[in-house]
Design a protein around this nucleic acid. Structure first.
Lengths: 218, 218
DNA sequence: GCGGAAATCCTCCGAAAGTCGGAGGGGCGC
DNA sequence: GCGCCCCTCCGACTTTCGGAGGATTTCCGC
């Protein structure tokens, strides 16, 4: 049995979830809460496997409650619950915050019931789910910058040069790099010179831009 | 009825999908294909609503086939099919490519049947789905950089200074900026000087890092 | 009209960065 | 062993930068 906790300030929504869960042989509603504070207490008392967490609630909001739930100490033998953030409106920012808060899932209330049930089971299985409606935002964000790390671009550099490269990319001066790498400044200059030559750059300023552009720092 | 096309070089997988779809009253398997070329032809002939597309196939692979499907002209009154990319191994790169190819969904073959069914219905409803297993990659990528544009940070700069700032952030030297902005190099120096003072930086190298760090270039 | 901000240009200076040639030592392959 | 590459360092030179002066014009607001 998957033990579920529902957190939502709307009684109607909680009741709906209760009925939905009752119809499933493998799901069990162990508690419900109407505020973030109640949610934290209920989670501690009933140790659910999965928490359905609304965002907009009086008092402690769902995202903050999620953070607390996931940072709270777990008793020996227990495990932190998986949190699915449930919200009415899909908003880009909310998805990002939910993910940062440590939620395993993000679904909207307009999702089909079977999708919600599938999400509970999937999350309980240790995987993550992003709701259809919210996925578009993710996709949009994901498909645009896509600045992937390209370590291959500095593959031509010798180990020491890579090291110097990364330090220079952080904005350090030759003297600072020298201190950091325990060598003389002249040595740093030599390395920087060959780095510039190998990468086809003209100044350390371009090194910084190059590094950021190709995801080698950040 | 949602018309489905299955594309996979494994006959067993196609048969499994066929059986799964048969058990659903609202889903209908209208065609199947074993290669990318067949998929494109089958899609044109049977005009499915949703295409389940494997990636690894002999000949035209699934991602390329997806691109073709979605860029192909649609007959009047028709609509391009929604494509769900199905693959055995979740790979970060594959997700990214699938999204870029225009796929509406990405699921792995180890997903529960009901998840796949839910995905078909959701995608047909015009939304997007990312499979649990692949979502983790997205989450990881999404939750780390999240470097949002902060134009407010250079709000203190005058218009001309902002201009110079952006040119300097690209790695240009004073002389290059001067040529680009049709002013003397001394003027550029003056501007750079006040930029550094206003932003609390010590060199143009830090300007580059600052700009990238806060999403002002890229 | 007057103050102030912005933009343009100048000179002078010191510090940092980059270039060039040279040079010694260590490791690795043929 | 010999060549090759890497790492280390040196000195001297040129260029670029950044800072500190000062100067002019324009434009805007009070």
């Amino acid at each position: 049995m998957i033990r579920v906790l529902v957190v939502d300030d709307q009684e109607l929504f909680r009741d709906g979830i209760a009925m939905l869960l009752e119809s499933q042989p493998d799901l069990e509603l162990v508690a419900s809460a109407a505020t973030g504070e109640e949610a934290v207490a209920a989670a501690e008392a009933s140790r659910p496997d999965v928490v359905l967490m609304d965002i907009r609630m009086p008092g402690l909001d769902g995202l903050s409650a999620t953070e607390r739930l996931l940072t709270a100490p777990v008793p020996p033998g227990g495990a932190a619950p998986r949190v699915i953030v449930v919200t009415t409106f899909r908003r880009d920012e909310a998805v990002a915050r939910a993910i940062r808060a440590g939620a395993s899932g993000f679904v909207t209330k307009d999702a089909h019931p079977e999708f919600l049930l599938a999400a509970i089971r999937t999350v309980h299985a240790g995987q993550a789910v992003i709701a259809p409606a919210a996925t578009f935002d993710l996709l949009a964000r994901f498909s645009q910058p896509v600045r992937e790390a390209r370590p291959d671009l500095i593959a031509a550099l010798s180990p020491r040069e890579k090291e110097i490269f990364l330090l220079a990319a952080k904005g350090l001066s030759n003297a600072e790099i020298a201190a950091d790498a325990f060598v003389e400044e002249t040595t740093v200059k030599t390395h920087v010179g060959s780095i510039l030559a190998k990468l086809g750059l003209r100044s350390r300023v371009q090194v910084v831009a190059f590094a950021w552009e190709h995801g080698l720092v950040g």
